[in-house]
């Protein structure tokens, strides 16, 4: 009989240890099945949380060989194949306060979630009695991010959060914020945007772990990127992150290529950059920073590049205006809709 060994991180409130359990292999099972088998047949004192069994309640997220995943929907055989091994390591999510074994504490996360005011602030034209209006297109903008089930997989593997969680929030918090910023029924996106910026939206490391781990196929990193863009659009531009991102566009439009040499000055300003002189000298000594290349020559097609960017932006703008007009027609109750009236 093929045996599968699970090395599970245990914790009793004080001490932490690794405990090994062995089960007979059964095909077509899940990680949650294994946890339940262990609890029911080997060790009732092993603790984990699980409820719905089908990836909608978010209770059963654990780490399998260092990768956060929902135990209920993760096939055991797929994991054994992925790791080419009949031994798997199960651990609690990272970046959470641990309660016991695989059980983590969500209460502190709720407090952090509330920081970005993740609730609808309905526009003044709407009221409780008659509800809101929203076009199908605008619904589509919030539909996907409404899939977040607060399972914590994104937070567990977030490199920035692991480094320092005092000036950054869990990726799912930004996803929630973006869901409200994008909601056409909401009147106060700026409040969420400035909160997002103040809570580290520009500090994301772009490691893409959150996108990779989300069991619902959401993209918190992209949500952070969208929050950044929206914040800029709303005039929240006083940030080194904005200057850094803008430098890329400026350089592309000016020469087609990046001017690394001037990046620090453009991002941090001259005064702060002076603090980095020892670093600059270090690079110069190895020829990595060449003062002669501070002002590179543009590629010869740079005018063409500028024209293409402009043209794509124009046609996008035209498309957005058309969509907005449609959306307005849908949500303004004063405009007659012959199609519906005929029904």
């Amino acid at each position: 009989m093929r045996k599968i060994t699970f090395k599970i991180q245990r914790f009793d409130g004080q001490e932490s240890w690794i405990q090994e359990y062995t089960l007979d292999h059964q095909p077509g099972k899940t990680i949650l099945w294994a946890l339940i088998q262990i609890k029911e047949t080997l060790d009732p004192s092993l603790n984990f949380t699980a409820s719905c069994r089908h990836a909608i309640c978010g209770a059963c997220a654990v780490r399998v060989n260092g990768q956060a995943t929902l135990a209920c929907e993760t096939p055991l055989d797929k994991m054994l194949k992925r790791w080419e091994s009949d031994t798997l390591i199960l651990e609690p999510l990272q970046n959470f306060k641990l309660i016991r074994d695989l059980v983590v504490d969500w209460e502190p996360k709720a407090e952090r979630l509330a920081e970005l005011k993740p609730w609808l602030m309905p526009k003044d034209e709407f009221n409780k009695e008659s509800g809101c209006r929203q076009s199908p297109e605008d619904f589509k903008k919030i539909n996907k991010n409404s899939d977040c089930i607060l399972c914590g997989c994104c937070a567990s593997e977030c490199n920035k959060l692991s480094g320092n969680n005092s000036d950054f929030l869990e990726p799912f918090v930004f996803t929630k914020a973006q869901r409200f910023v994008a909601d056409s029924r909401d009147k106060n996106p700026v409040e969420r945007l400035s909160a997002a910026i103040n809570h580290g939206a520009w500090k994301c490391q772009h490691c893409q772990e959150c996108v990779t781990k989300c069991p619902k196929g959401l993209s918190p990193a992209e949500d952070i990127s969208n929050l950044r863009q929206e914040a800029i659009a709303k005039g929240l531009v006083e940030h080194s992150g904005v200057r850094h991102a803008k430098a890329f566009l400026d350089d592309i439009q000016k020469t087609g290529r990046l001017n690394e040499g001037m990046m620090a000055v453009k991002t941090d300003g001259l005064v702060k950059s002076i603090g980095n002189i020892p670093f600059a000298l270090r690079l110069m000594s190895k020829g990595k920073l060449n003062p002669a290349h501070m002002f590179p020559k543009p590629i010869k097609e740079v005018a063409e590049v500028r024209a293409i960017i402009l043209a794509v932006k124009e046609s996008e703008k035209a498309r957005n205006i058309a969509n907005a007009k449609r959306s307005e027609a849908h949500t303004n109750p004063d405009i007659q809709r012959p199609k519906e009236a005929a029904k």
Binding site: G131, D138, R185
Partner: peptide
């Protein structure tokens, strides 16, 4: 309607 006002993302008809 109150749930709509609370922010439930309901699917929509063309009329909004």
């Amino acid at each position: 309607r109150e749930l709509d006002y609370y922010g439930v993302p309901f699917s929509r008809l063309e009329s909004g």
